[in-house]
């Protein structure tokens, strides 16, 4: 009995797998090559799947880019979010300078600059080309003003500062384009939220598309799977070609999405530059970068692999070993 057991053990050791690093790597490369050949063998259906994945990845990426640019635009305008205080006629230069010193020491104020009545007149004459008309008026109609830059540019903080400044006795009126900043802020929030929802929905769509394509592949290769099971292929071995197929579908879809984004960018960059120059903005549009492209490729590959893993492993584990 014990002699037979020993023999059995030696029989078993003969059939143990011998995993060598080179063997494993070349085995993976072979499966990769096989997946590529299978795509080439069914070019139309592969191309359609890849195209649908590309569109599903393109839309959230595009929206993300738009949201980023809106944020940049908002930041750009918030830099110039100055509050202008027009002082009352009774406030003389001395009082105005004292007030500006007071404000400068406040925590929520970054900087203050004072423009006296005569400076305002000189600037107006130089800048408007209407200097002659003002001279004919005789009296200087322009008020002195303080230009205040808030240290905190959050709309709420700016609003609080404005309310406080309005209450000052020396201040006639306050000018601030807060509403515009708030609107931009809200718009950006909408686009961001839309982008997040779209990314979630379309990410699920990619999982579904890849999973469906893999399901078809598994059905077509049922006979092969049976043979592999019979010769002792593990669930991982059986799933491996499908995981590679899913990974490649995601990667190719993401690559196509990147190319489409770059083409789109090329097509609209002229009109956008034109638009921005009309607004005289210094704002530079944030284009699709190499980092964005790499992230999109990584996300696409991961989604493809996950879709394939869910689809293949659930099927493999649902059937007998």
């Amino acid at each position: 009995m014990s002699a037979r057991d020993r023999k059995t053990a030696s029989e078993r050791s003969r059939t143990l797998p011998q995993h060598s690093g080179g063997g494993l790597l070349s085995a993976h490369l072979e499966v990769l090559g096989d997946s590529l050949r299978r795509f080439a063998a069914a070019p139309l259906s592969s191309a359609m799947t890849i195209f649908v994945i590309a569109i599903a990845l393109l839309l959230p990426a595009l929206l993300g880019l738009v949201a980023d640019n809106l944020a940049g635009l908002g930041g750009n305008f918030q830099d110039s979010a100055r509050i202008t205080l027009f002082l009352t006629g009774q406030t003389d230069d001395g009082e105005a300078v004292a007030l500006s010193e007071d404000l400068r020491s406040a925590a929520d104020v970054a900087s203050v600059s004072y423009t006296s009545r005569s400076q305002a007149l000189a600037e107006f004459q130089a800048g408007s080309g209407l200097g002659g008309i003002v001279t004919e008026l005789g009296d200087n109609p322009l008020p002195a003003s303080l230009s205040v830059t808030p240290s905190n540019r959050e709309p709420d903080a700016v609003q609080a500062l404005v309310t406080r400044l309005q209450a000052l006795p020396q201040v006639e009126s306050v000018l601030v384009d807060l509403l515009w900043i708030q609107r931009l802020d809200a718009m950006q929030a909408v686009v961001n939220q839309l982008g997040r929802i779209l990314a979630l929905v379309l990410g699920l769509a990619v999982l579904f598309i890849v999973g469906n394509s893999i399901r078809t592949g598994i059905e077509q290769r049922q006979r092969e799977i049976e043979v592999v099971r019979l010769v002792g292929g593990t669930a991982g071995y059986i799933a491996r070609p499908f995981l590679y197929s899913g990974l490649l579908l995601g990667l190719f879809g993401a690559t196509l999405a990147c190319l489409l984004l770059m083409a789109l960018q090329l097509a609209v960059s002229g009109p956008i530059d034109n638009l921005l120059s009309l607004y005289g903005a210094e704002f530079r549009i944030r284009f699709f970068t190499a980092v964005d492209a790499l992230s999109l490729l990584a996300i696409g590959s991961l989604l493809g692999w996950s879709g394939a893993a869910i689809s293949s492993l659930t099927r493999i584990y649902a059937s007998p070993p």
Partner: peptide
């Protein structure tokens, strides 16, 4: 026979070794 007709004779015979992860030269 249960052979795989989309692969050549070598690949068919090699399948049990590949599944076990044997090296290429050994296979």
């Amino acid at each position: 026979h249960q052979l795989l007709f989309d692969r050549d004779v070598f690949e068919n015979v090699a399948l049990p070794l590949k599944v076990s992860g044997y090296s290429k030269s050994h296979t």
